[in-house]
Amino acid sequence: MPDPRVVFDDLRDEGDALDSLVGGAPVADWGRRTPAPGWSVAHQIAHLAWTDRVALLAVTDADAFAVETEKASAAPYSFVDEAAEEGAVRPPVELLARWREGRAALQDALSAAPAGARFPWYGPPMGAMSMATARLMETWAHGQDVADALGVAREPTARLRHVVHIGVRTRDFAFGVRGMTPPGEEFRIELTAPGPGGERWTYGPKDAAQRVTGPAVDFCLLVTQRANRADLALTADGPDADRWLDIAQAFAGPAGRGRDPQDHGSRRRA
């Protein structure tokens, strides 16, 4: 079991890394289109600010969070876009301040949460560490969209281990959200960690009949649906593992449509 303080610190660092991209960006850059259809850089930050706010409600005010879930139930396919649109029209300096304040408040609330406490969410209830991991995953994923819009190549870090963890744990969810029966057996996952050491992050039994291998960063891009499988250096052995790589989804909500293959160039890594 990871030390909760490590997860909380990594969440803070992931937010700071994205803040370094947008904090000093010219106002014009906030209007740049990102790979997410209809979303600018401002939409991406507005979404993170909104999600941090509702996560803070989940941790500190369950009744207020219940009101948010009612709104989501009334418009399940549009409430996320509507919240992003509402925030994106704010001046960048105001939006940036709201995001900074919200993520700092959530960081404090998660760090102060009692051990073993569970909080409501749009999926199953989560503990503080799981909530922090989910927020890190989303921050990294939306940060990738921002980096792509700004033409910035981000250096992968060991914080990706948290994204990998969610990606592996949500395997059955990815099948279920599409009305498919999850495989009955575990897969072996072997991923090459970022950095020069060539460390391997492994999950599942060594003798599993089906497996997935490749760079950890590519796996993270896949499960957050930030890149098409065709543009990634991931290999599946076994029919169920192969199907999983087509539908993998680490985030809650309806089945995502994913990203189209790149028209030129490639993310594929040797």
Rank of each mutant, 00 (worst) to 15 (best):
R161L: 13
H162N: 00
H162K: 06
V164N: 09
V168A: 12
R169E: 13
T170M: 15
A174G: 04
G176F: 02
R178C: 00
G179Y: 10
G179C: 09
M180I: 14
T181P: 00
P183N: 07
P183R: 05
G184T: 06
G184R: 14
E186G: 00
R188I: 03
L191A: 07
T192Y: 06
A193C: 11
P194M: 13
G195A: 12
G197K: 14
G198P: 04
G198D: 01
W201P: 01
T202G: 03
G204P: 02
P205V: 02
A208G: 11
A209T: 07
A209K: 14
V212K: 00
V212T: 10
G214N: 04
P215E: 05
D218W: 10
D218E: 13
F219M: 05
F219I: 06
L222S: 04
L222K: 08
V223C: 12
V223F: 06
T224K: 08
R226E: 06
R226M: 00
D231H: 11
L232V: 04
L232R: 12
T235M: 10
D237K: 14
G238F: 02
P239W: 08
A241R: 01
A241H: 03
D242E: 15
D242R: 08
D242L: 07
L245A: 02
L245S: 06
I247S: 02
Q249N: 03
A250E: 04
F251G: 00
F251H: 06
